[in-house]
Design a protein around this nucleic acid. Structure first.
Lengths: 140, 140
DNA sequence: TATTGTTATACTCTATAACTATA
DNA sequence: TATAGTTATAGAGTATAACAATA
């Protein structure tokens, strides 16, 4: 097997793994009336308050798309908006207590769903996997 | 660090990695007017011809959703439908030559996008990663 | 009656373009 | 003028319910 083949095979596994994890996230989201995108938004806002534009850039979405996403989450009491006092154009977005508690619950469900598979790896292997995934993660 | 923490940390990396790869797939799909779901459909039909219901089950979608997805891809000449002669209710779906060539091109783009990251791993590490991902892949 | 697939409907996600308000 | 955000619009993705055709 050539080096190129080994990369191709790995990419194949990586893509299938991605769809697998995405399936888990999508299912758990759907059970709670949350889309995959909403899940990402909540993951990002867990420990931050961001402006609409920054949030959109983070997710690779248009500002207008963000407006809609925020609208719907705000209507459900999960997110809130606040005007920035030093620049009247800016709107900051952050999670409400309800949003935080939902996020925590969803995190628990995701862990519960994925832990059984990962538990089949030895602790040493888990450490290895964590290390090997680093090159794929977004640069800081 | 406890064993549970190590699993949690790994799940975190796995989810971030998933969003990263999903971002690559979404971007490449969007450049070719293909959604993530369409990409999955084409991945599945690469070497198969499936009935509408089986395709829906495979993707975890409703039959009616499949009808719409197939409609749009058929209108673009990428997929085709055929009646099953032995059961008049069944419709089989398969890729056209145009669909196949598009799939090949997209595969190339995905490889080109992900290879640089993976090339930063040694061949030995790539083999390790491939092995460690197996427990996460859907059972045969 | 049960199964396969489509259609009608409604809602979310998404981008583009046009707009308002602020700087 | 430029930037931040919203709104109007249009199309894709999604599920539910109702339907037609076949078994």
């Amino acid at each position: 097997m050539t080096a190129e083949d080994s990369v191709d095979e790995l990419i194949d596994a990586l893509v299938r793994c991605t769809f697998q994890v995405t399936g888990v996230l999508t299912r758990i989201g759907a059970d709670n009336d949350m889309s995959l995108t909403q899940l990402r938004v909540f993951g990002i806002l867990r420990d931050r308050r961001l402006r609409v534009t920054d949030l959109a850039a983070y997710l690779g979405l248009d500002k207008s798309t963000m407006s809609g996403l925020i609208d719907r989450a705000e209507r459900r009491g999960l997110l809130a908006r606040a005007k920035n006092p030093s620049d009247g154009r800016v709107v900051e977005v952050f999670m409400t207590p309800l949003g935080h508690s939902l996020t925590q619950r969803l995190d628990g469900e995701v862990r519960a769903a994925l832990t059984p598979d990962l538990a089949r790896l030895h602790p040493t292997q888990r450490t290895q996997l964590l290390t090997l995934l680093q090159p794929l993660l977004p640069a800081e």
